[in-house]
Design a protein around this nucleic acid. Structure first.
Lengths: 229, 229
DNA sequence: GTTATCCGGAGGATTTTCTTCCGCTTAACG
DNA sequence: CGTTAAGCGGAAGAAAATCCTCCGGATAAC
């Protein structure tokens, strides 16, 4: 059912499908995972009927958004690692892409439905591993060259991104846009190595993040779909 | 109606009232402003009836929580400014108090209902101004003594706190607790001067935050009560 | 120009959340 | 202790929010 997605679809239908995913990506970030379907449809400029025709239920939509996010990121990550010799520049570019696309890293790494969607699809799963792998390697190289503090791991980065991502700006608010960019930049400075003060606890890795997701250890984490186990 | 709050109340009733406020404080942070009243009641270990008897509707509860938050913080802020000569130590202590109490700075500074509640009560309003004043002064002194980067304002601090506060840990999860403390520390490091790279935009002040709240310029900001104007 | 595909959104069905109400408990006080 | 006024819990009816189907009309494709 998901295969003829882009193939046998009429032009307007394909356009609408993309608009829906785009709108859902932002709305999930802005209002949370149980934002009403009507609102998503309105934001996408289509009727609810169209939304339901393309995505029979909420979890299908979440799956689609997650996979789309992941595909974009994996693509970019691969390209950057291949073409950009300086890991600091590459990591910077990757994080900026997350910001500019409101990519909701939370969703692709953290939602149970999204995780299920990923497991269901070997290609996507490979993309996920690839993406996390690239981030890990870039991070390590940055730490080796001294451009990122040594006392953090990928999970720390992920959690910080998740926190800041929650404050995605409204579409038409310049001040919000400015504040969001600024907050993001401020966050990135937190990872710089100069005179880093000792952090409590220990570096948080991807496995920790997975544990937090599964056990609801942090509010706003996991349970991206209302009826997640 | 709010005056005999602590006065003419039977001992068990007063205890319950406090438990409700405590539970609501955390639940608002964990689940957002429209968390069902039943959940708050359950978390407080009381029946819904008790909750409604004490707080006739949601906005009364939000008001009570906000005022309670503000009272605690203003008290601590005043004490710190008076007794602690080093502004860096004082500011640090203030921020740690916010963390330890899950104080929901968001709510006290940012919700329309909370803002209304504050305007309704001159004493509380004075406490609010006092608190923001203390933070401003401490911040300025820290910047003068070189312990905080000079290119930020109070609003930047507030927004960062709001972002990180959203990831309040679950009650019984050690990993979540650790990650939360760590994230908080990481955030504070972002404000140190040694690693300051040029930030985009301009310093965000309290007035900007107020504007963002009123116009919904940042997701998750403002509209703490479902029917906020 | 024809037709298969797609669209929008009104509105009934369903789920979630609110709020009241009353019989049972308990703190307060002599 | 015993009395009593204050307080409690939570079942259940009311209200609100959300879901999702359905079909007359529009439009891309050829």
């Amino acid at each position: 059912m998901d295969q003829q997605t882009s193939a046998t679809l009429r032009a307007d239908a394909r356009r609408n499908r993309e608009q829906i995913i785009e709108a859902a990506r932002t709305m999930f970030l802005r209002k949370g995972p149980d934002v009403p379907m009507d609102e998503i449809a309105r934001a996408a400029g289509v009727g609810v009927g169209t939304l339901y025709r393309r995505f029979p239920d909420r979890s299908e939509l979440i799956k689609a958004v997650s996979q789309d996010n992941l595909r974009r990121m994996a693509e970019l990550a691969g390209r950057l690692e291949r073409d950009e010799p300086d890991p600091a520049v590459a990591l910077d570019a990757l994080l900026h892409a997350i910001r500019d696309l409101y990519l909701g890293i939370v969703m692709t790494s953290v939602s149970a439905v999204a995780v299920q969607a990923i497991k269901d699809n070997p290609v996507i799963q490979e993309q996920r591993d690839e993406l996390l792998g690239v981030v890990s390697r870039l991070l390590r190289r940055c730490q080796e060259q001294g451009s990122i503090r040594p006392d953090i791991d990928g999970g720390d980065l992920l959690l910080m991104l998740a926190a800041v991502s929650r404050l995605v700006p409204a579409a038409d608010d310049d001040l919000g846009e400015m504040a969001f960019h600024r907050l993001f930049a401020l966050m990135m400075d937190a990872f710089r190595p100069e005179r880093a003060s000792p952090l409590p606890g220990r570096p948080v890795d991807y496995q920790d993040v997975e544990h937090l997701r599964q056990h609801g250890g942090l509010a706003g984490f996991g349970r991206i779909a209302p009826n997640d186990p």
